[in-house]
Design a binder for these strands. Structure first.
Length: 1029
RNA sequence: GGGCGAUUAGCUCAAUGGUAGAGCGCCUGCCUUACAAGCAGGAUGUUACUGGUUCGAGUCCAGUAUUGCCCA
């Protein structure tokens, strides 16, 4: 086999990789669904973004969640379809176009309907692709061949069908009611398009003179101009202040209209003066009151928000101009009372950005009860759809219960024109509220009907209005699949599996889809509704256009990559439905949390590089799965971890635990695989044991490839990129990670006992590292360590993991003692004295260091000399004369007398020298190993042996005496205090008979074990403290 | 006013009722042949408050405070 070792740069280039794979997926139609293919269907329809829109963080978040689910299911073998598309957004498009026209000095009326719509389609063709192309940059695994638009032919057919059916069933009617009127777009709008805003306004008090007696009643209002349409004054019939006035009349100022004082329970005596003006044609509550009390309905507004002919002297004035003038005139009349500052909510048009006016007009409505009740029944009886998290089911239910009839007509041109034709010839050639009409599939059909009713000469005119965009959006899950035709797609993929959307549109969209679907298809359109939270900005504020605090996902994608952004968003999700917060610095356009994810991509990248560099150019497939009988401890451990994590991720994703899965992957890849496994196999890859090396390669390759599969739904681009490199499938192979089988946990490889044992090894390594750090031992220095345990099992684990401990904790000599037997396991080879000496000589010949340094080296030599039984002859010390010259023989002699006389002092000095020596020549530690192994007895006795504990393993490291005793003592005291507190808490619990009796046995046992461990630790710490003096 | 959330380390967030963890930031030491976008080690908490249930409460219950969202 020709070994071509794939070469990767040391940093992942997200931009190049993303563009490449997005193109690859689309060109190869990787995500094109085939209804004839096998597999349980898994279909998701995209919540259609607004065709005028551009990508915002909410899209990025939602899309990341959906794509993770969809890619996961596809890899799990489901027949998967994610269907993309956009909605036509009547008002938004119309607003944009009218703005353009205005700039050209034209109006849409001048242009005419046909020309206007031509323009609209042209605009859609040119600019409507923005959002869709931005979605591509997120790497969505949608089937672009099935992309739909709410106004395309098929969906328009579905809309027509739905309208006609509902009309035929008497579920659509035309009537004169109060609707939300947007004076800017001059159309009725749905509740959805109304945003209530709190404003600092005023409460004006007006005096309405009584007709039957002297004096007046005082009313309060936030909208003074509406008084022009007042047709009553209302009080609460239980209100003693006013109830005697009920039945009398007042003279409405400025209009000089006599209007009644009525009693109505609705009036809150505590609000304002307790006496309210009633404007039935311009306020929802007043409308109801007007109906209850048979009041007159006087409309004072034109459609553009100016005062109409019913407003007397104010006719023609804009509503806000009229407001000022009404106040001014009342003041002149002496009828203006107090003006209070008053905070209240004003409904604003979402699109027009102006206050909405409740306006009485003739509109089309959907009768909602017959639609909501079956949906409610499915919820209550079948728990369908299933909301995740469950609590949103209640919100959905409340909405279904409280639904009011739905105004579906919009006074716009861009949209589905209402399929109703008016026989205008019956009402003098003009369309009035009473003109007879017929609903039909086409003008021809309407004409046929009309002729039957009104004769050959009937003159028809189609209703100019269009349907609410949500009417077509409500059909989305089935209209996109071909309904009303029984297409193969519809048969195969409907009902869909999961709807993923934000809670903010449960009411408007989700409920409409369930009602429409239940009515038209007899089924709920999706099994599950997964509700996600909002992405909040760095100040925990909801991102919105009005606060202009949106964070542009494309900026973050350019900076950190799509995978990093997606991963950040998904990882942030904890509980479903919980809002997430995105860190962001607006000055630098940086985000620390996305940066952390980018670092994670780079970590994966470099781990993969490492694996690639060590596979001798072979692919995982060529290497094959390792022979199970040849697996070493660390191999069995990482395989167990991998399959355990696979199991956990599958469990989590199956229950929408996407954030948890993302975190599990992070911990597995960065922690288990990179920090431990890769480090553990390095010696085997570089060593001479070819069998061991091969098993390591096989395991590395296997775990890497499978991990890429696990991670793919969360980070599709980088995993695809690495996978192609690792498997040596180039782009032309047509193969893709996206269609590989998602890893399946192999229970025979999962070994919790082994994992637990491995934890002891990891803990031991950490403890040694920790002790090294406490003792300030340089990272390059190899040390001695002694492990003691009374447990044979632990002893066995430690022995089997001995090479790992030595390697990762930089331990040269490791003894594992069983205290009873004092059996010593030696593992390290000792260097010869000659090696040491020659090393020192080499070092010194190269470096002329300061006096102190040289002095210590000199001491080393002298000490070595003192231990003549171990050392070679003095003539092997070539530089001695130089030292004597430099340091002075007198000092050396004195030191030798003081320090080397007693054996114990000498031992201590050995340690110091060993430490110093390695510090000085730390760059070549292997060359300068200690010549002597310190006997266990010395370790036990030495004041400067540092001891730690892991589990019940005692870890001892003989120190060289160069540590900060004061700091170590303080630290030890602190640790001891902590452990003592734990002992107190644990023994308190265990001495409580109730705890021992009532708590589960395993909990009690855990506590006992913890106590034993804590006591052992306390003992060790106490000993250490005693020794430290 | 009604409903639903949230409040845990400096920040962002975790923790089937068993005695609190991670990432980022911070401190210390390291350019150790995959990665300085890195490695090793470290410090940091009256779990908002007050009661209650329980052998045991961050977790369950009640109330309070603060905060966010939805509805009116």
């Amino acid at each position: 086999m020709t070994a071509t070792i794939p070469n990767l740069p040391s940093q992942y280039d997200s931009a190049a990789s993303e563009a490449k794979w997005q193109k690859f997926w689309e060109e190869n139609q990787v995500f094109k669904a085939d209804p004839n293919a096998p597999g349980e269907p898994y279909c998701v329809v995209i919540p259609p973004p607004n065709v005028t829109g551009s990508l915002h963080m909410g899209h990025a978040f939602e899309t990341a969640l959906i794509d993770a689910l969809v890619r996961y299911h596809r890899m799990c073998g489901y027949n998967t379809l994610w269907l993309p598309g956009t909605d036509h957004a009547s008002i938004a498009v119309q607003t944009i176009l009218e703005k353009q026209l205005k700039a050209e000095g034209k109006t849409r009326q001048e242009l005419g309907r046909e020309a206007f719509l031509d323009r609209a389609w042209k605009w859609k063709a040119e600019s409507g692709g923005t959002i869709v192309n931005q979605l591509r940059r997120l790497g969505v695994s949608v089937d672009w061949s099935r992309e739909r638009f709410t106004m395309d032919e098929g969906l328009s057919k579905a809309v027509l069908e739905a309208f006609i059916k509902l009309y035929d069933e008497n579920l659509i009617y035309r009537g004169n009611y109060l609707v939300n009127w947007c004076p800017a777009s001059q159309s009725a709008v749905s509740d959805l398009e109304v945003e209530n805003q709190e404003v600092n306004g005023h409460l004006w008090h007006f005096r309405y003179p009584l007709v039957q007696s002297d004096g007046y009643v005082e009313v309060a209002t936030t909208r003074p101009e509406t008084m022009l349409g007042d047709t009553a004054v209302a009080v609460n019939p239980k209100d003693d202040r006013y109830k005697h006035l009920i039945g009398q009349t007042v003279l409405l100022p400025l209009m000089e209209r006599e209007i009644p004082i009525i009693g109505d329970e609705f009036v809150d005596p505590a609000f304002g003066t307790g006496c309210v003006k009633v404007t039935p044609a311009h306020d929802l509550n007043d409308f109801e009151m007007g109906k209850r009390n048979n009041l007159k309905f006087i409309n004072i507004l034109n459609k553009d928000g100016t005062i109409n002919e019913n407003g007397g002297e104010f006719q023609g004035q804009d509503r806000f101009v009229a407001r000022k003038n009404v106040i001014k005139r009342l003041e002149e009349e002496g009828l203006l009372g107090e003006i209070e500052d008053y905070k209240h909510t004003v409904p604003y048009s979402d699109r027009g950005r102006v206050p909405i006016e409740p306006l009485l007009s003739t509109q089309w409505f959907v009768k909602i009860k017959p639609l909501s009740e079956p949906a409610l029944a499915d919820l209550d009886q079948k728990h369908s759809p299933d909301f995740v998290p469950d609590r949103w089911g209640k919100v959905y239910r409340d909405w279904l219960v409280n639904l009011k009839d739905w105004c579906i007509s919009r006074q716009l041109w861009w949209g589905h024109q209402i399929p109703a034709w008016y026989a205008v010839s019956e009402t003098g050639g003009v369309l009035t509220d009473t003109t007879p009409f017929m609903v039909a599939r086409s003008e021809a059909e309407a004409r046929e009907k009309a002729i039957a009713l009104f004769g050959e000469n009937v003159q028809l005119e189609q209703d100019p209005d269009v349907l609410d965009t949500w009417f077509s959006a409500g059909l989305w899950p089935f209209s996109t699949l071909g309904w009303p035709d029984k297409t193969p797609d519809f048969k195969r993929y409907y009902p869909t599996a999961t709807l993923v959307t934000g809670f903010d549109i449960i009411f408007f969209w989700v409920a409409r889809m369930t009602m429409m679907a239940k009515h038209f298809t007899g089924e709920m359109p999706f099994k599950t509704v997964y509700i996600h939270g909002l992405v909040r900005d760095e100040n925990n504020k909801k991102m919105s256009k009005s606060s202009n605090n949106g964070i542009d996902p494309l900026i973050l994608i350019d900076k950190y990559g799509t995978d990093a952004l997606r991963y950040t968003l998904v990882r942030e999700v904890t509980g479903a439905g919980q809002d997430i917060r995105l860190e962001y610095n607006r000055k630098t356009d940086e985000s620390v949390s996305v940066e952390a994810s980018r670092n994670f991509t780079n970590k994966l990248w470099n781990a993969s590089r490492f694996v690639l560099m060590n596979l001798d150019g072979k692919t995982p497939e060529q290497l094959g799965f390792p022979d199970k009988s040849k697996l070493e401890l660390s191999d069995r451990w990482i395989l167990s971890r991998f399959h355990q994590v696979t199991q956990q991720i599958r469990d989590q994703v199956d229950h929408y635990g996407l954030g948890e899965s993302a975190k599990l992957l992070y911990e597995f890849i960065w922690g288990d695989f990179c920090d431990w496994y890769i480090e553990l196999v390095k010696p085997r890859l570089q060593g001479n044991d070819t069998a061991s090396r091969q098993v390591a390669q096989q395991t590395l390759a296997y775990v890497l490839e499978e991990t890429l599969k696990l991670l793919h739904p969360f980070m599709p681009h980088i995993t695809e990129e690495i996978w192609h490199t690792v498997t040596q499938n180039d782009e032309n192979s047509g193969k893709t990670l996206a269609l590989q089988t998602y890893p399946v946990p192999d229970s025979t490889l999962i070994n919790p006992d082994l994992e637990q044992q491995f934890e002891l090894l990891i803990g031991t390594i950490r403890t040694i590292r920790n002790l090294r750090a406490e003792a300030d031992i340089k990272p390059g220095v190899k040390i001695q360590a002694i492990l003691q345990t009374e447990s044979e099992q632990e002893e066995h684990i430690l022995k089997s993991g001995q090479p790992y401990i030595q390697d990762l904790a930089k331990v040269k000599t490791l003894r594992i003692n069983h205290p009873q037997t004092q059996s010593i396991l030696e593992s390290a080879e000792n260097l010869s004295e000659a090696d040491l000496l020659s090393s020192i000589a080499t070092f010194l010949s190269k470096h002329q260091r300061v006096l102190l340094t040289i002095g210590f080296i000199l001491l080393t030599l002298i000490v070595l000399k003192a231990c003549a039984g171990v050392l070679g002859a003095v003539h092997e010390i070539p530089l001695l004369p130089t030292f004597l010259e430099l340091v002075g023989i007198g000092y050396t002699t004195r030191f030798t007398q003081q320090k080397l006389w007693k054996v114990d002092d000498r031992q201590q000095l050995f340690d110091q020298i060993e430490q110093f020596k390695t510090e000085v020549v730390g760059s070549r530690p292997d060359d300068l190993e200690p010549v002597f192994d310190v006997p266990p007895s010395v370790i036990e006795d030495s004041a400067q042996t540092i001891v730690g504990v892991v589990g019940t393993v005692r870890v001892a490291i003989p120190l060289a005496g160069l540590i900060d005793l004061v700091a170590l003592k303080a630290k030890t005291e602190k640790d001891l205090k902590k452990v003592e507190a734990e002992i107190q808490s644990l023994s308190g619990r265990l001495s409580n008979a109730k705890f021992v009796d009532k708590a589960p046995a395993d909990v009690v046992q855990t506590a006992r074990d913890a106590l034993a461990e804590a006591e052992k630790q306390a003992e060790i710490l106490q000993t250490r403290l005693d020794r430290l003096g």
